[in-house]
Amino acid sequence: MSKRDRDRLAAAGGTAPVVQIAAMVIGAVFLVFGVAGFIPGITSDYDELSWAGHRSGALLLGVFAVSILHNLVHLAFGVAGLVFARSAATAKTYLLWGGAGYALLWLYGLAIDHHGPLNFVPVNSADNWLHLGLAVTMIASGVLLGRLAIQPDRP
Rank of each mutant, 00 (worst) to 15 (best):
I139P: 08
H131R: 09
H74L: 05
L59C: 10
L72C: 15
V73S: 11
T43E: 01
I112K: 14
I139R: 05
K3T: 13
D153E: 15
A22R: 05
L148A: 06
R154G: 10
D5H: 14
G146R: 03
Y46W: 14
L60M: 09
N119K: 10
A80E: 11
V35I: 02
M1T: 12
L31I: 05
K3C: 10
H114Q: 13
L31H: 02
N71T: 04
W129Q: 00
V32N: 06
R154K: 09
G57D: 14
F77W: 15
V35Q: 00
G27P: 03
I26S: 15
D153N: 15
G27Q: 03
G116I: 15
H70G: 01
W129C: 07
G37Y: 08
P40Q: 07
P40I: 09
R154P: 05
A58K: 05
A140M: 12
G99P: 02
G41R: 11
I21N: 06
G62E: 07
R55N: 14
A140D: 06
F30S: 12
L144A: 11
L31R: 02
T93I: 03
A58D: 05
A111T: 07
L110W: 09
G146N: 07
P155I: 09
H131K: 03
V136R: 09
K3I: 08
F120W: 07
I139V: 15
G78T: 12
F84D: 08
I68R: 10
N128K: 11
P122W: 07
V66A: 15
T93D: 00
V29Y: 00
G53T: 08
N124D: 06
A16C: 06
A126G: 11
A103S: 09
F84H: 10
R55P: 00
W51E: 02
T15H: 06
H54W: 09
V79P: 08
Y94A: 00
Y94W: 00
D7W: 08
A23F: 01
D127G: 04
A85C: 04
V19K: 01
G109K: 05
G37V: 11
R55L: 14
G146I: 11
H54D: 09
R154T: 13
G116N: 13
A65M: 13
I112T: 12
G27K: 03
A135F: 02
F30N: 11
G133W: 08
G34F: 01
G34Q: 00
V73T: 12
G146H: 09
L104G: 13
N119R: 04
V63E: 10
R8M: 10
I21Y: 11
F84K: 10
R6M: 09
M24W: 05
V136H: 06
S44P: 10
A76F: 02
H74M: 04
